[in-house]
Design a binder for these strands. Sequence first.
DNA 1: TCCCTGATTTAGGTATACCTAATATTTAGG
DNA 2: CCTAAATATTAGGTATACCTAAATCAGGGA
Lengths: 240, 240
Amino acid sequence: MTAGHRPGRSTESVDNYLKAILALSEPHGGRVMSKALAERLGVAPASVTNMLQKLAAAPAPLVEYERHRGVLLSPAGRRRALEIVRHHRLIETFLYEVLDYPLEELHEEAERLEHFISERFEARIAAKLGHPRTDPHGHSIPTLEGEMPHRSSLLLAEVTPPPAGSASCVYVVDSVSDRDATALRNLEANGITPGARLRLLPGERFLVSLAEPATGDASAQPISLTREDAQEIWIRPLSA
Amino acid sequence: MTAGHRPGRSTESVDNYLKAILALSEPHGGRVMSKALAERLGVAPASVTNMLQKLAAAPAPLVEYERHRGVLLSPAGRRRALEIVRHHRLIETFLYEVLDYPLEELHEEAERLEHFISERFEARIAAKLGHPRTDPHGHSIPTLEGEMPHRSSLLLAEVTPPPAGSASCVYVVDSVSDRDATALRNLEANGITPGARLRLLPGERFLVSLAEPATGDASAQPISLTREDAQEIWIRPLSA
DNA sequence: TCCCTGATTTAGGTATACCTAATATTTAGG
DNA sequence: CCTAAATATTAGGTATACCTAAATCAGGGA
């Protein structure tokens, strides 16, 4: 082995499996199938099976796995996955706030570093940042205790716009995805960042405009989003 | 492979071999033998031979290696080694200045992270720190262009103190080693950090006292160092 | 119910980077 | 100059994490 004495006990690769299982099980809360994992991790399905078998056979398994029935995080596995997500999001926040990284370059750097920082590093950047609760993309940062603060939000791509002729309605941008740098740059250029007010125009899907934070008035010309863009944006009702 | 798309081209392990060859060849400037490398890297001599053969056989070799005659860095290998050393020392400086790490914990964290930061990360922390020329241990930081600024200094363990009865003489602490955290904590507790004035008392080896920066006067009771401590301290004459 | 298709798993193989034990080379002492 | 000790190399093996190709399994439609 070449990555021997890492602060955490697991390898970079194992960390990535755990993170992927967490992310894919989040929507439905159930078991995750190998194919989905293989796709997300960019490896062959056979590699996934192999890894899951090894993980499940370990003395203190990080996953529960049954042949042909998919995989689930064990409590320990979930704790580790959340620790890595916490690292990732704290690092992103740090790069953004302290090192002035552009929004769309946060993910790649954090994706690498999240596996290698010590507890001390984590603690120090968290303190420096004033223990932030969300990262620059609007995602919740898991707590030190391994709790993931829940946020309820809607994927813009799945929201039906108000019927033609009726009034438009205003939402708040809850978060944007960090995984596609190009889309992210595009959204940012249009002012669509976490906290922004988004007015859904009636009738047409994915036709929106920015709204003034205070008044809710439209402040710019309509923005026509692609379906792909809408897949990257989570919104919540203004009131909540 | 598990550490795929790293900013640099080489692996963590290869980086460490290059750094070790650089460090061990620095004193005499000549070839480095497998045994010395094996000791420094904490691997078996056979593993070193293996790695050197592979490195030397690569299309654009990072080392020049001849069986039984030791190894030398190629220009490309030296460039890469200096890049990693630059990373290491910039990270140490950053951890110390920005994240308030204690001196003796810099090395371990930097040793891990040096392999994984991007060019952008390097550039940003260098800018944030005002492009420092030395790290908190007093070591020169290689330039972006791959030059290692030379500093001439003497290992305290090898300096003969002034003869008994004659005057003591004053040196400046040029640098302290970063590899032994315990020794480092001890030195720091005694005020022996880069830039401190050190008065060598006559006769006894390793018997020193701190001196006032301005006057050169002794400002404290004598400090009795062990031979091991003296192996960790580099000094230069006051004038230089 | 049966079978077909897609998903999953098994089998067998690659590359990296390490190990130990056995062998070979160099060098320094007599 | 020749041998013994120190050093280096070869040979063969382990573990991780990936791959492809060849079985095998599970669930839905005829």
